[in-house]
Design a binder for these strands. Structure first.
Length: 482
DNA sequence: TTTTGAGTTGTTCGA
DNA sequence: GTCGAACAACTCAAA
């Protein structure tokens, strides 16, 4: 059945609002513009192209399902769902509704950018007004380049000179449309998208997170209240409260970086500068990752520094599996990997530790770690994930010097001195005294017996020697420069 | 074009 | 236990 616009709302034009990674109602530029046109037809399209190597991972699919549920509620249940090729779906919807406008907020992944460009051209050729906006980055990737026109490769000048000195104030959040008139007919239901896993493995995720716009706002408020003061040092403590945990909300666009930026900088009378500046620079790193991906479209697959193409990665499935399952015998690594599996998230400091361990102690290709993160992280983000793995591996931009190899014992003792984090995710170690919590293999036999730990039985022996594997990695890296 | 200073997050060793 | 130096050399950004 074809519904003409007159049966819906006689005197108003229909504007399709195409939601993508901007699953929010407030500070949504495209939605704001759509609401000014007339009747809004909001739609989410699950476009799973077979050529996309980076189709949504498992944890992301769960999150997306929950986030869309929340968004649909905000939109008074008027959100359309569809699956298939975005252009086909849009054309279909336009024909059904008589819409003359399509609005969306831009995505910056390579595949999405080329697809969107194609779609915009096609729609315009059909006489449709197709417009896109920036809703997800503080500084769009094409605006921040060096004076010679080439992209930045070092964070500090990128952020200070390329971004802040030229655009000291990111766009202010645009607020919420005063009124939205919805197109009055529905598409298929959300459950038909098949995002929610059939096997119910996601209970522990649901306990840890509250996807959706309201959840994102609560997270920010909570962080501003209890987390931002002392952020600069406290952010390194994985069991502490100085962590924003906004990453999945930002990834799905449940909150705009603009709002986060301005709320943090406008509370500056209460927050020490060192803390707010440091937090804002973390938002800057997100921008930097997007900038890198924009200018290096094969960042997810290819070493940014070509000399790493010669690196002798070890192909060892059993070691990779032990890492994935948190059975390396190094408590802080294992706790991190269990946290990832159970909550879809790892604290930043622990990410660096587990990543360094995989790449340097096990000498396993960073792309295998990146792939595992892609499937298990609720904040899996192509730009951030790729740029960060390359950074740890040493193959990326502004990367750590190769001799910077994390020692999981030292790191654990420094940042989880009482073993609170380790014990939370490795209950089998909960009775180990803190002196040995990061190195249980050094504990005297009677201590282990007392703590109910039997190495090799209920907690593994270390799978590699730190000293030897470190030296091996160092010499492999040394070979590269010759 | 050349030069100069600087670059997110560490570890180990020896005094 | 604490502290500073060594760990290499390179690439980047900007004057």
């Amino acid at each position: 059945m074809k519904l003409s616009k007159h049966e819906n709302s006689p005197q108003l034009d229909v504007a399709v609002m195409w939601f993508r990674q901007d699953l929010r109602v407030s500070d949504n530029v495209a939605l704001m513009e759509a609401s000014k046109v007339g009747v809004v037809l909001p739609i989410y399209i699950l476009d799973e192209s077979t050529e996309d190597k980076w189709a949504l991972g498992g944890a992301s699919r769960w999150w997306l399902h929950e986030s869309l549920t929340a968004l649909n509620k905000k939109l008074e249940g008027k959100l359309w769902f569809a699956r298939g090729e975005a252009l086909d779906v849009l054309k279909n919807v336009i024909e059904q509704s008589g819409a003359k406008h399509v609005f969306w907020n831009r995505c910056y992944e390579p595949l999405a950018m080329s697809r969107d460009a194609r779609i915009k051209t096609a729609l315009k050729n059909d006489g449709i007004c197709a417009k896109s906006y920036n809703g997800s980055l503080l500084f769009e990737p094409h605006i921040s380049v060096k004076e010679d026109g080439t992209p930045y490769k070092v964070f500090t000048p990128f952020f200070r000179k390329g971004c802040l000195s030229r655009f000291p104030e990111p766009e202010r959040p645009c607020g919420i449309p005063s009124k939205i008139v919805y197109y009055n007919q529905k598409g298929i239901t959300l459950s038909r998208l098949g995002l929610k896993p059939k096997v119910k493995w996601y209970d522990s995720l649901a306990k840890a997170w509250n996807p959706g716009e309201d959840g994102a706002r609560q997270r920010l408020e909570e962080f501003l209240k209890n987390g931002i003061v002392n952020y600069k040092t406290g952010r390194n403590i994985p069991s502490g409260k100085n962590v924003s945990r906004l990453s999945p909300h930002l990834h799905f666009g449940e909150i705009s970086p603009h709002r986060v930026w301005h709320e943090v900088s406008s509370s500056s009378e209460r927050i020490p500068n060192k803390d707010s500046d440091h937090f804002l620079s973390e938002l800057g790193w997100r921008e930097f990752s997007y900038n890198l991906l924009y200018h290096n479209q094969d960042l997810p697959e290819k070493n940014l520094q070509p000399k790493f193409d010669r690196f002798p990665w070890v192909k060892e499935d059993s070691a990779l599996k032990a890492w994935q399952e948190g059975r390396t015998g190094y408590p802080v690594v294992d706790a991190g990997m269990k946290a990832l599996w159970h909550t879809g998230y790892i604290h930043n400091r622990v990410r660096m530790i587990v990543a360094s361990f995989l790449v340097k102690n096990l000498m396993i290709d960073w792309r295998l770690g990146q792939r595992w993160f892609w499937d298990t992280l609720v904040d899996a983000d192509l730009a951030n994930n790729s740029a960060s793995w390359q950074w740890v591996a040493g193959s990326g931009a502004d990367a750590a010097p190769f001799f910077r190899i994390f020692n999981p014992v030292t790191q654990g003792e420094k940042f989880d001195p009482d073993g609170v984090y380790v014990k939370k995710f490795l209950p089998e170690l909960s009775c180990i005294p803190k002196k040995y919590i990061h190195s249980p293999w050094l504990a005297p036999k009677e201590v282990l017996v007392e703590a109910n730990v039997c190495l090799g039985k209920n907690y593994p022996e270390p799978i590699v020697s730190l000293k030897e594997s470190r030296e091996k990695a160092l010499s492999a890296f040394n070979e590269l420069s010759n």
